[in-house]
Computed example of a mutant assay.
Amino acid sequence: MTLPSHDRYDYSPIAARPGFRWPQGKGLAVYLGLNLEHFAFGEGLGAELAPGGPQPDVLNYAWRDYGNRVGAWRVMDMLDALSLPATVLMNSAMYDYAPALLEAHRARGDEIAGHGRTNSERQSTLSETEEAALIADATARIARAEGRPPAGWLSPWIAESHVTPDLLQEAGYRYTLNWCMDDQPVWMRTRRGHLLSVPYPQEVNDIPAVVARKETASGFAMLITDTFDEMLEQSTAQPLVMGIALHPYIVGQPARLRHLRRALRHICARRDDVWITTAGAIADCFASQMPHPERTPETDQ
């Protein structure tokens, strides 16, 4: 029996792959994916603290907006205190809504990655032409503000059409965070070349953990520390990537922030044993050591 396939990558057991290491011979790379999102008022999609009523859903809109007004600034203070970099996964609408927040992350030197225009929409519901325009709009807005286009992309709601990887590669993206099938970067095929998949977590991610599974603040912190300790042990055999996906309207709430700080301090205590970095640096390091065997100057354009 032959099942329908995406044909983006082949099966590869992690125990049978060629070896490589992260900088300074380290086995575990850790990055923080900080989602900065803006939502339409009275329409569109959005995570819910409680079941939403008829629009305008003021409760859930205001809860999400707390992240941009308060939570993101508290998270940034914590990252500064712990000397931690971040990959900022940003809706391009944030440039018009909260420019001061983006200026602060730019001043920190954080990586800015594409995250659509707004999390009120899914690109998977669009035609190919419309989806290409969405990617182009978000990319151009980031490039104007940051002086260069982003290297990485995370779709709002991790929503893809059948051609999303093709469109990202054609738009100049070097890596995607949409696929959570591995603990190492994986080269993906597209119709005009190759795109690197960098692991982005759906377990160590506050939306599935807190919003969907109703994990407590302490439980989410334990999920982070237990994952870190286990992956650090595993990384003696194979180099691994641990991402931590955060949304300030969730983890920026005071009680959750306190437990998150404890978990990140646990990771920082092993700073000499791991590579704490950004998703883009992980993509570049992997590509330099493990280039796709079929890559050519033509397919990289």
Rank of each mutant, 00 (worst) to 15 (best):
T278E: 03
S235K: 04
S83A: 13
R141W: 13
F41L: 14
G33Q: 05
L134S: 08
E37W: 02
P99D: 00
L134A: 10
S197W: 01
L223T: 05
G147E: 14
P18H: 07
D110W: 00
A107R: 15
T2D: 10
D206R: 00
T125D: 15
D300A: 08
Q289C: 03
V204L: 05
G44T: 10
A98D: 07
Q289V: 04
P156E: 09
R108M: 04
R21Y: 07
Q253Y: 05
G147A: 04
W187F: 07
H38Y: 03
C285A: 15
Q184C: 09
G193Q: 04
A15F: 08
W63L: 06
H115S: 05
M181T: 15
G193T: 08
P23R: 11
A50E: 15
R108T: 04
Q202C: 10
T164L: 07
G33L: 03
Y9W: 14
P185T: 15
P51R: 10
R271S: 02
E103Q: 12
P149M: 05
D229E: 11
W187P: 12
F39D: 00
V163P: 05
A113Q: 06
H247W: 00
P51Q: 08
H266P: 08
Y31F: 07
L102E: 02
H105A: 05
H247V: 04
P239D: 07
E128I: 10
G109K: 04
R265N: 14
M76A: 11
N91H: 03
Q301W: 08
A81S: 14
Y66K: 07
A221H: 07
Y9H: 12
V211H: 11
M222V: 12
R261M: 10
E215I: 07
T227W: 12
D183Q: 10
V204T: 09
I250N: 02
R265Y: 03
S197V: 04
L232G: 01
W187I: 07
V211P: 15
F39G: 00
A138I: 06
N35K: 03
L84M: 12
R258F: 05
Y95K: 09
S235L: 09
G219Q: 09
Y31A: 06
Y95E: 14
S288N: 11
C285T: 15
A159M: 08
R270T: 01
A159I: 06
P201F: 03
R256A: 01
S155F: 06
G152D: 11
V88T: 10
F286Y: 11
I158P: 00
A151D: 05
M78K: 12
